[in-house]
Design a protein around this nucleic acid. Structure first.
Length: 370
DNA sequence: ATGTAC
């Protein structure tokens, strides 16, 4: 008996370029045991074996490697009390440093308060990490839905803070344990081994949420600011869904209230409200960002010839990028990413979102460490 | 992605 592969739906208009490598990766995962439905979002791009920007639903199994190593990675947004007219870019640039270095605070107390075991201690709590992670100050560029904006209690004059970070070494260790024990073979829902993984997974989620909270606190301390958290969403996770298990690999949830869909570091970020009507067709998932257009090595090769580091430290929107790692600033340049407008337009056209507002970057912090 | 493997 041949068991049919899971159906794959890709939500993207003809105007959106989707890497055939990423589509082939989805086909490979469609043939895995117990995978029943797959959705690719418009930011779909090739990953290391598993496509990023996708959701995988199974009625019977949990696949830790579909979640990946950065369990709990996500985006959080704060509204600060600071009006844009009082925000000084040069001063912020001078004061922001050290967010990639270990946090000197009371890790054990923070973990306990978050209901997490002290055994999850590690130097990384409160630090941004590498890759595409960042902390960014933004202002409101435009409001697209006045009613939705007002209902969130937002103020167009205020500066906002967005954090993209995850569970650092913790999530990686949890996936490594699984791979060492049973390679990529799936866990059968209900088995003790599955419950054990899910318990570890949930701890990594909690750790990642706490990590973003502490990074924001450190950021605010540096700048003498205060803020309230508006949202925190994970785009790498596996959760119980419609009697089965929903794996999100670089996919934002459509069932956790408003979300942010960030562009590249030189582009707008969109605050959107998920629409429930067609959410199930997209496995309750949305794009988590612009998505890569070029691989890291392609970006380095192409952009080193065209731009100096100094040029990439200023963006076309007038914002600044603090990234003293000169390899990373090329890898993460806006040119290496797809057009966020197209990604958001595709979700809008599919009836999956209402665009609430666009946010414009002021300063993006990645690392001071060369 | 990563208290990274080469």
């Amino acid at each position: 008996m041949r068991i049919e592969d899971a159906p794959i739906r890709i939500i993207a208009s003809d105007a959106s370029w989707i890497d055939p490598v990423a589509v082939e990766q989805l086909r490979q995962t469609a043939a895995l045991e117990g995978i029943d439905a797959i959705v690719g979002l418009p930011d779909l791009h090739a990953g290391r074996g598993i496509a990023v920007g996708a959701a995988f639903w199974s009625r019977s199994h949990v696949h830790p490697h579909l979640v990946g190593s950065d369990i709990g990675c996500g985006m959080a947004l704060w509204e600060t009390e600071t009006p844009l007219r009082k925000f000084r870019l040069d001063a912020a640039d001078r004061k922001l440093r050290g967010l990639e270095e270990p946090w000197e605070g009371d890790h054990a107390a923070c973990l306990a308060k978050a209901g997490l075991p002290a055994s999850l201690m590690g130097d990384a709590l409160g630090s941004i990490g590498g890759g595409n992670h960042f902390a960014e100050m933004l202002c409101i560029d435009s409001v697209c839905d006045d009613e939705a904006f007002a209902s969130l209690g937002l103020d167009t004059a205020r500066v906002h803070l967005m954090i993209h970070s995850g569970s650092r070494g913790l999530g990686a260790a949890i996936l490594d344990e699984q791979l060492a024990r049973r390679n990529v073979s799936p866990l059968k829902a209900g088995d003790d081994a599955c419950a054990a993984y899910l318990a570890r997974h949930d701890e990594a989620i909690g750790w990642a949420v706490l990590n973003r909270e502490i990074i924001a606190r450190r950021f605010f301390e540096r700048l003498g600011m205060k803020g309230r958290r508006l949202l925190d969403i994970c785009h790498n996770s596996v959760t119980a869904d419609r009697g089965g298990w929903l794996h999100r690999k670089g996919a934002a949830p459509a069932d956790h209230g408003p979300i942010v869909i960030p562009g590249s570091r030189g582009d707008l970020t969109y605050l959107v409200r998920p629409r429930p009507e067609h959410a199930e067709e997209a496995l309750q998932s949305l794009a988590h960002g612009a998505g890569r257009k070029w691989s890291r090595s392609e970006a380095r090769d192409k952009l080193r010839r065209r731009f100096t580091v100094a040029e990439l430290e200023r963006t076309r929107l007038g914002s600044r990028v603090i990234c003293e790692d000169r390899e990373l600033i090329y890898e993460e340049a806006p040119q290496a990413y797809k057009d966020i407008r197209q990604v958001v337009a595709d979700l809008d056209r599919a009836g999956l979102i209402t665009i609430v507002a666009a946010l414009r970057p002021l300063i993006t912090y990645k690392t001071r460490r060369a």
